[in-house]
Design a protein around this nucleic acid. Structure first.
Lengths: 158, 158
DNA sequence: TATTGTTATACTCTATAACTATA
DNA sequence: TATAGTTATAGAGTATAACAATA
């Protein structure tokens, strides 16, 4: 399993170039997390991000999304609940499941992070040519689409 | 300071679209960190990443790069040193400064993470058209260049 | 005296293991 | 009996404050 089929269809040099050039974008993306006040620890922010992307879910699902384990996720939820960022309630369908939901305050904080991020990106993109901005947008759109398509079979085995 | 000049030169809708579509790339990027075995905690991996990008540095510089404080960074270095991933030695120029350097083992581990990342990206990019891959690469190149240009003045104030 | 870095203490984060409760 | 989740306990991560050593 050291070599894969796709490495014959997509030149490794292009893949290597993309990952190398993507770093600046990733660093700028992550920088926004440090900018929100009052500060939210990275682990907690990650939980909020998962819930914002996929909606309410139970603890088992959250555990999977975090590549974590139930006890760690449960502790995280303890702190988020204490901070008023998360609501935990028993599922109406199954008495042993818990439904995790973002609080309104959590949504406001996530909006703040997203706004910081857009400001950071706007500052960089203002220095790009319109043509480059369009290339970036289209490239990212196709990448997102391709990532969505492969979401099912590409879940990394435990 | 609620509205900025660049928002008049780059349409906010494009910026919003790019940040929205960039998420899939960022998530895939970050996923590689969970895949390295034996596992390296995110904070430690972040330190290694900083040292790999900028080379050896003293603790004050590392603290700045992490948006952290000296005591936290020093503790992190304690654990990295104990794990054999980092070498701490007194600077030959100044007896109160410490030079932090990656160990060979750290470089091997970082290489492993990078390889996982390239494999993940290759798998997604194999589902893109050559044209889209080229657009993505060029867009990211321009973005990186623009980010580098603005690095000086855009350091967020403490 | 200012700068560089470490240490004391306390709280947050994560994992292993043991546990409770529901299906 | 298996599944969903929580609770000990211990080690990793982070910040505030106090400290030692060098410039």
């Amino acid at each position: 399993m050291t070599s894969r089929q796709h490495e014959r269809t997509t030149p490794g040099s292009t893949v290597g170039e993309v990952t190398a050039q993507a770093q600046a974008l990733v660093l700028l993306w992550e920088r926004a997390d440090d900018g929100v006040v009052p500060r939210i620890p990275p682990s907690q922010l990650r939980v909020l991000g998962v819930l914002a992307r996929y909606g309410s879910m139970n603890l088992t699902r959250l555990t999977q999304e975090l590549s974590s384990i139930p006890s760690s996720a449960s502790r995280l939820c303890d702190r988020l609940e204490a901070a008023g960022l998360l609501v935990r309630r028993v599922s109406p369908d199954s008495g042993r499941e818990v439904i995790l939901t973002l609080s309104d305050e959590a949504r406001r904080r996530l909006d703040a992070v997203a706004q910081i991020r857009r400001d950071d990106f706007a500052e960089v993109m203002a220095r790009m040519s319109p043509r480059s901005r369009a290339a970036l947008l289209n490239g990212l759109r196709e990448f997102s689409e391709a990532a969505r398509c492969g979401e099912q079979e590409s879940a990394r085995p435990a």
